[in-house]
Nucleic acid binder design. Structure first.
Lengths: 145, 145
DNA sequence: TAATAGTCTACTTAATCGATAGATTTAATA
DNA sequence: TATTAAATCTATCGATTAAGTAGACTATTA
């Protein structure tokens, strides 16, 4: 299950994607519409900024905004930031690889092998979902209602 | 990432699967070959027993053994025991459903919709991997080495 | 009945999660 | 230039969970 931090970051990013190219969005505006504790959201947005997802403008008329276009940001990127590895085991991860410290030979470990297979498919799916896809999905669901 | 508890339980179950129909296996034997702290392993096996995965025999010649055959126990079942929901969001879970408390209308929430899609595929994959599959995989990897 | 092996209760310790408070810096505008 | 609006930084906090340990107890069987 995703942490609140990750959930909040996704909610915030989708919100910013909806306001893409419409100027900066206030923290307090995101906080209110998405029901996220303001102070907590501040720290999340700051981290998103440090990692190149968003940018901000200080002072009057300031706020946060997406740097890249909504179809250039996918779920896999966002999850990795706050959750770390996508794989279920460290020995099956690429970007966050670590030995599990249990099996004698990683190359022939059956557990690792199947977990890797799951990981590969999960990453493939997550990369296939961008912020733009999520917004389109929402519009489709509204239409067919 | 899976908790140590879950990892240890998978290691222990695979071990028991390898010894299926060969009589009870000692906690200390599992602890030693799989490098799992004994006391911690005790509590894990107890929980696996309470949940119908294994059974035990006390006294001399005792130990733990699988109840069901290794091809009848899959990854999804095992993960759910110690990790809870497989879905990344509570609103996308079946067996552990909870409202997320953020969107106005769950039926048209784009985030939930894509997370559900990922969940469905993940569960499908996990159900496809049994303890027997993991052991077969290991044998295949050894053969092709 | 002695030895063996699982079971139960109760801790402990460290890390992480979720969140808040308050002071500071930056920028726009009146 | 003073005022105000925003983001930023530092620091801390309480609650929960993860990981693991200790030790007494119970059941089995040779």
């Amino acid at each position: 299950m995703l942490s609140k931090k990750t959930r909040y970051s996704i909610l915030a990013m989708v919100k910013l994607a909806k306001e893409y190219n419409k100027g900066p969005v206030l923290i307090s505006s995101i906080s209110e519409t998405e029901l996220i504790p303001k102070k907590f959201l501040e720290s999340i947005l700051l981290e998103l900024k440090r990692n190149g997802f968003v940018n901000s403008k200080k002072g009057k008329g300031g706020g946060y905004y997406l740097i890249k276009s909504p179809d250039q940001i996918n779920l896999a990127d966002m999850l990795r930031l706050f959750e770390g590895a996508i794989a279920l085991l460290p020995c099956a991860a690429y970007k966050y690889y670590e030995s599990c410290g249990h099996c004698k030979d990683e190359q022939t470990c059956g557990i690792r092998s199947v977990i890797k297979e799951i990981r590969d498919e999960t990453v493939r799916m997550m990369k296939g979902f961008s912020l733009a896809d999520i917004i389109n999905r929402e519009n489709d669901l509204l239409k067919n209602k």
